[in-house]
Design a protein around this nucleic acid. Sequence first.
DNA 1: GGTTTGACCATAA
DNA 2: CTTATGGCCAAAC
Length: 122
Amino acid sequence: MTARREPRVVTEGFHQRVFAVVRLVPAGAVTTYGDVAAALGARSVARHVGYALAALGRHGASDDVPWHRVLNVKGAPVGDTSQRALLEAEGVAFDGRGRVDLRRYGHRFERELLWEALRAAE
DNA sequence: GGTTTGACCATAA
DNA sequence: CTTATGGCCAAAC
């Protein structure tokens, strides 16, 4: 019989869910592409998180999404240089190499809130 | 409608 | 530290 497909993470509402997760990150905290992906169920979709956020600019629906709080796993901003200024304005400190201490500023997603946000995004 | 390009991460050598 | 590879796409050209 045909092989059973395991549930995918990147489904039709993927972009919406990425945005919903990013919205949970409060000012003064940061997260990473990998963490967002993990919150959605699979770390390997980190790339797709990037794709979704890149698409965000095209769509112009980034009003509610604090995209600047998303860093790469090294704790460094990706892309726009204004990202650093935005974070510093929220009280996030950068080290000499332009990196953020993720252990200090990294946001921990709570399951309850995550559920709620994801459910609302559907 | 094929080819190109793009906000990434973990792992191995 | 660097380089290479694999991993669930989707929009623009």
